[in-house]
Nucleic acid binder design. Sequence first.
DNA 1: TCACCTATTCATCGAACGTTGAATTGACTT
DNA 2: AAGTCAATTCAACGTTCGATGAATAGGTGA
Lengths: 237, 237
Amino acid sequence: MLQSAAMTAPRKTRSNKRERILNAAERLFAKKGFHGVSVREIARAARVDVALVSYHVGKKAELFEAVLLRRAEMLNEERLQMLEDCIADAAPEPPSVEAIIDAFTHPLLNRSTKEGRGWKDYFSLVAQANNNPEVGGVLMSRYFDPVVRRFLEALRMALPDCDERNLFWSYHFLSGALTLTFAETGRIDNLSGGLCLSSDLDAVHERLVPFAAAGFKRLCGLHDSAGRQKLPPAKNR
Amino acid sequence: MLQSAAMTAPRKTRSNKRERILNAAERLFAKKGFHGVSVREIARAARVDVALVSYHVGKKAELFEAVLLRRAEMLNEERLQMLEDCIADAAPEPPSVEAIIDAFTHPLLNRSTKEGRGWKDYFSLVAQANNNPEVGGVLMSRYFDPVVRRFLEALRMALPDCDERNLFWSYHFLSGALTLTFAETGRIDNLSGGLCLSSDLDAVHERLVPFAAAGFKRLCGLHDSAGRQKLPPAKNR
DNA sequence: TCACCTATTCATCGAACGTTGAATTGACTT
DNA sequence: AAGTCAATTCAACGTTCGATGAATAGGTGA
């Protein structure tokens, strides 16, 4: 994006080997995790000499970040656009909680179903990273939280006088549900005897939005602030 | 549990090195994942010779399973007991959705807060395993799904005529929210500017139960089956 | 034509990996 | 006192790891 001409058509050289490396890394990191794959294995899968990985991308950790960053940018753009659209559509009323959550989840679930395998691998990678104590609180925050803050602002419009901590925790629950979906581990296939499929993200999209919206409304109060129900103390046992 | 006497007081031999190995493995697997730790590093942390790992536990993969299994058994016992209690307390009425979800989550969150560091490490390990496509659909199913099925049966009592697929997916969302909580990545600390803390599982427990219960009721229909609201088609865009 | 620069290959470094067979210890039985 | 057996240590196997410096190829601009 920064170097305009040199990136798109630099005479005729510039092979696609860097892309091949990133693609292979994406697939293998998604399948086995950062430490579960060697740089040599990635290079082999990309049909590229090992030293080219260092040359084009850098060290192994930099390769991981490059894979993570590559798709995050376009994702974030689309999510913000969809959020602005849904705010504009509802104006001057605030948008519904459902519409906001849909703008948050739809660009992800839709890409994973409608586009190539690369996106599925990418989201599986995100799922593992998000639950990893080494990177979940750092890389994920860096790449995605700026967008998350915008969505939280919108949710404050839809849920006025909402308690801040309830809002953050509600988002946390939504993030966890979405994240486990991306992992596509097949566990629900087993549990449901084949009635539900991890890979059926359309089925998730139909259900995650109302599920999470109900949770947000319950915690963050959809009623007038006077009549809001109090949380149970949860001090049993 | 099988060998009764030899386990508890075998004269005086039988050091605790096997336990030390499992403890060190639990901590390091939780921090860096299966492939991120070497057997030698685990042995070093346990202050034990490398070969003792193979002798007492077996191969690296068997060590991982042993760590996972060790606490799963007592967890499952307590969860089932709490479920039976909550069913008995409510009888002859079916228990509330909130009570069932509390029986499902409380034994986990409570141990993680009230007991030693080992339990926190264990749950962090579970969080990573649950989101890992290599083991999330196999090991997690094997160790925890028998208990999950019992909870789903109870939820069918509380939510009669519930659509089966909605029930499974609702559980999936709950599992994701709970799982991300266990990871304790610190991401919400950053996002909320310190207002919420990953380590504050009491705050989670207060909120996860009503959040998830609202989602279950929304998806699985708390009203009479005639007046149930239909899901939006989600075919927008 | 020649120098230049990027892209690519080759060869190799030391370190760490998981696992195992053989040797040693030490408390108990006979 | 000798024997037994589980627990533990020691040493080493062959393999793979991430990284890099030096050499090569090949199209481009001077």
